[in-house]
């Protein structure tokens, strides 16, 4: 039994770390934006301001509606469930106000899309962060 203890301890340590991983908001390296406040992120992802500070129209990227990173992102950023956010977007879309972010089903493709589009903005699990991306915000 004793020989299992280190293994169990390691697991016990790993699980909470996995669950509490932060989400980072990333843009293309060529984007002059350095930092975005929580307010700016809310405005951008809730369709209230679709422009970066330099006046460039943002290409907002979103994950699959079933993904856990999307669930956590909206829960932490605006305190809403994915269903509530979807109902919100239904309202905005069908009032002709703004369209929801582009959905990219595969999380690695989100990273690729940010790299390939100068005006893109996306969010990813901090654990998935790679080079060539600029972190402009962090949501714990």
């Amino acid at each position: 039994m004793k020989r299992w203890i280190p293994f169990i301890l390691t697991l016990a340590l790993l699980v909470p770390i996995g669950a509490e991983a932060a989400i980072v908001v990333v843009v293309n390296n060529a984007n002059p934006t350095e930092k975005m406040s929580e307010r700016e992120l809310i405005d951008m992802y809730m369709g209230r301001n679709l422009y970066f500070a330099n006046g460039q129209l943002a290409l907002r990227l979103d994950h699959s509606p079933k993904s856990s990173v999307r669930r956590d992102f909206y829960r932490q950023l605006v305190g809403k469930t994915v269903a509530q956010v979807n109902a919100y977007w239904a309202r905005l879309l069908f009032t002709g106000t703004a369209a929801p972010p582009h959905v990219i089903p595969d999380k690695s493709e989100v990273i690729e899309a940010v790299k390939k589009n100068v005006n893109a903005i996306g969010y990813i699990d901090e654990a998935d962060l790679v080079e060539d991306l600029k972190v402009v915000g962090r949501i714990d």
Partner: peptide, 19 residues
């Protein structure tokens, strides 16, 4: 187009949505 892939994305889309 619904779900877009990781190509360079042209935002001047034609979109169809409904309820």
């Amino acid at each position: 187009p619904g779900l877009v892939n990781a190509q360079v994305i042209n935002d001047n889309d034609f979109k169809v949505s409904g309820f």
